[in-house]
Design a protein around this nucleic acid. Structure first.
Lengths: 193, 193
DNA sequence: CTAATTCAGGAACGATTGTTCCGTATTTTT
DNA sequence: AAAAATACGGAACAATCGTTCCTGAATTAG
């Protein structure tokens, strides 16, 4: 039989997420990948097929990680409104702290590729539906416990939250560093609850 | 003396906006530009310098057009809330009707280039400030006339509106075609007023 | 007409793109 | 120890990238 792999495929994927997230799909060259993943060209292509396959595999991994993250936070939450605030503040903090702002890998990929690549469009669409569903479930829970006003439909609120999350990620990617700016938006968002 | 230009520079810029908007900066090749602008390579480079210069000139033109558009709408408006609704519905309609969804050229460029290109970052930042200011002025007017609740600070509302506008543009670019989805978001946004 | 200038078309540039392939080293199982 | 299988580094691929340059035709002003 053959020798075993000397690198961890998931670790390589995480590094692919990093570089694609930072530079985008078209902005990342094969050489960038070789350098950043610390793999040989041959290992890279043997393992992942081609650039597009590697990208969508990385994006899917990122999606899963993000979903698991906020789902866990909201499932374990006893105060939905507070947890939603935390989720938003996390997104803002990432924007303000990162020396290089990367925004959200999913938003970036949606803007760059969704209309030109069906598989990416599928991932982006799946992501939207799943995240919306997670928000919906959480808001429903908050409304049942009386923490969130039932005046607004939970579906509407979930979509509203999602939309503002996307918006913040764009501003982050654009390099917005004004704390007050994000603070203002958060104030407005949570006024509706 | 020399012969006169046979093409209109502004018309060429409008075509540049179209193709960059559709394919992005990195996704648009020099050949794409030659084909779409219907100029020879030499005329193109003689007139606009290089790809990056052409792009930023096109983006600036787009910015100016967009600003003028919503500024005019809001200046002439006697019902700010209704006019804001129209502006949002316009954005949604563009998404639903266009056979190929292009989103917003400014948002697309912000995501793709702002962190890698200072000049683009400047345009994006200018755009954010100007649009915010236009919204601010309009909301202030609406509050003074009693049409918009003065419960919320006009600056907060302006930024909130801007954020949701960005979000919608991302969803549009991602190919979201569900009318109800956009309807829900609009409901939530205008609930705050 | 002449001179000046800009046009369009295409050849050509070196650099970089994504991808393939080969020779060698290494590790595993029989 | 032998055989099988895979990782690896690096050379090499054709294609495309953005850009420059050259050509001759076209149009203008003097």
């Amino acid at each position: 039989m053959a020798r075993t792999k000397e690198f961890n495929e998931d670790q390589a994927l995480d590094k692919a997420i990093e570089i694609f997230w930072h530079k985008g799909y078209n902005g990342t060259s094969a050489q960038d990948l070789v350098t950043h993943l610390e793999l040989s060209r041959s290992s890279l292509y043997d393992t992942f097929g081609d650039k597009q396959k590697l990208f969508s595999k990385a994006l899917r991994r990122y999606q899963k990680q993000g979903e698991d993250n906020i789902e866990k936070l909201l499932d374990e939450s006893t105060d939905i409104k507070a947890t939603l605030t935390i989720i938003f503040k996390q997104a803002v903090l990432e924007s303000l702290e990162d020396r290089i702002t990367k925004g959200c890998f999913m938003v970036n990929s949606a803007v760059e590729l969704a209309m030109h690549d069906e598989e990416i469009a599928k991932i982006v669409s799946d992501n939207r539906k799943t995240i919306e569903q997670i928000f919906f479930k959480a808001i429903k829970k908050g409304q049942n416990s009386g923490q969130i006003s039932a005046q607004q439909d939970a579906r509407i609120l979930a979509r509203f939250i999602f939309n503002n999350y996307s918006g913040i990620r764009v501003l982050a990617r654009a390099g917005e560093k004004d704390k007050q700016f994000y603070g203002d938006i958060l104030k407005a968002i949570f006024f509706i609850f």
